[in-house]
Design a protein around this nucleic acid. Structure first.
Length: 363
DNA sequence: AACACGTGGGG
DNA sequence: TCCCCAAGTGT
């Protein structure tokens, strides 16, 4: 390990950070709820790759709907997904549901306190296990997230790709080494708060940083260039067409397979446009393949742009008349005819919700 | 080890 | 507009 810190420097690091935290910590709902491991767990899952401001309303709504591990375990996955609707990364919701059932079965309904036990639950990786163990149970467990990575890379001028296995190992070791025994919960949150509010990705506020005097990157004036980022691939762009298929005031929706992208969510039947195929032909073909029924494709109803993390779609929605054949789920898990107002009971991906908004607006 | 997995906000 | 990215995990 290249970066070995002297005991004195470790102590100073923690002392300055904790003092800063006492005066600058954010007042967040899950901090008030830190005595309840279930709430800490929910907050940590919601916060994965998601900003605090986005999480806030979901946190309140989720806990109002599922106040305990047992309530979550007893709920249907559809209800859980509906509560998660719009938050993204829906595997988090599926894992949460499954983990709640495992906690009831294996841990008497209580979130386990140790990193090793937490790691056996779906959706809980090394970061989340450390966060729950330290924040809810004050165990001496380190965390390494995007914030901690940024703070440490800058503080110690670590210029290697932070995603690489070697650097990861080094960073975890450092997070562990810096941890003041008996105060892990506070220390970890302090480190993350510092990264979120002071040691920010762009234009860090070094003058407000409690660690600025001993920060290696700042001394060199290269704060903003760390941590190193690896090159991103350009996003593919797809044309997608879906059908708003009407029959006697009801509309046909299909449920996606659990394992797929947006698994377990509902959508309007349709899919990717193939080469040498018009968007109308695309809807017809997809509906035939997905539901073994025929539709008459009429006018285009709406066009929605939507960016995912790894591709971008232009989603074309067509008004369609159901022609003949009984729908039969082939390429989807399930289908249903629902009235427009019933649409709000089902969890849809963001792109489809924009179309629903138009459907409701036009009625 | 690299990729897949969502979404909304900010510069 | 476009690009970046935000308290990661699973495969």
């Amino acid at each position: 390990m290249r970066n070995r810190l002297t005991p004195a420097r470790r102590t100073r690091f923690a002392a300055r950070l904790l003092l800063w935290y006492d005066q600058n910590k954010r007042d967040l709902p899950w901090r008030r709820d830190a005595h309840d491991p279930y709430r800490v767990w929910i907050s940590e899952i919601l916060l994965q790759q998601t900003q605090v401001a986005t999480v806030m309303p979901y946190y309140a709504r989720f806990l109002a709907r599922f106040p305990t591990v047992r309530a979550l375990a007893a709920a249907s996955l559809d209800d859980v997904l509906k509560t998660w609707e719009g938050a993204g990364y829906y595997a988090r919701a599926r894992h949460l549901h499954r983990a709640a059932q495992e906690i009831v079965a294996r841990f008497d309904g209580k979130v386990p306190p140790t990193v090793d036990e937490l790691l056996t639950l779906p959706g809980i990786g090394r970061y989340t296990a450390g966060a729950i163990a330290s924040i809810a149970f004050n165990r001496d467990a380190p965390v390494l997230d995007g914030n901690v990575t940024r703070v440490l890379c800058r503080y110690l001028n670590i210029a290697d790709d932070p995603k690489s296995a070697g650097t990861q190992k080094e960073l975890w070791a450092l997070a562990e080494e810096l941890l003041p025994r008996g105060r892990a919960g506070k220390f970890n949150q302090a480190l993350m708060d510092l990264g979120a509010t002071v040691c920010t990705p762009r234009r860090p506020l070094c003058s407000a940083c409690p660690l600025n005097r001993s920060c290696a990157a700042r001394r060199l004036g290269i704060q903003a260039q760390l941590p190193a980022k690896h090159q991103k691939k350009t996003l593919p762009h797809h044309q997608v067409a879906v059908g708003l298929i009407w029959k006697r005031g009801r509309i046909l929706i299909a449920k996606r397979f659990a394992k797929d992208l947006l698994g377990g969510l509902w959508e309007f039947p349709g899919g990717h446009q193939e080469k040498r195929e018009s968007l109308k032909q695309c809807v017809r073909r997809e509906v035939r393949e997905e539901l073994e029924t025929e539709v008459h494709v009429e006018d285009e109803f709406a066009v929605v742009e939507h960016a995912y993390s790894h591709f971008r779609i232009t989603l074309h929605a067509f008004n369609c008349q159901w022609v003949r054949g009984r729908p039969r789920a082939i390429g989807c898990a399930e289908y249903k005819w629902v009235s427009p107002r019933e649409l709000s009971r089902y969890a849809f991906p963001s792109a489809n919700r924009k179309i629903i908004a138009k459907v409701m607006g036009e009625r």
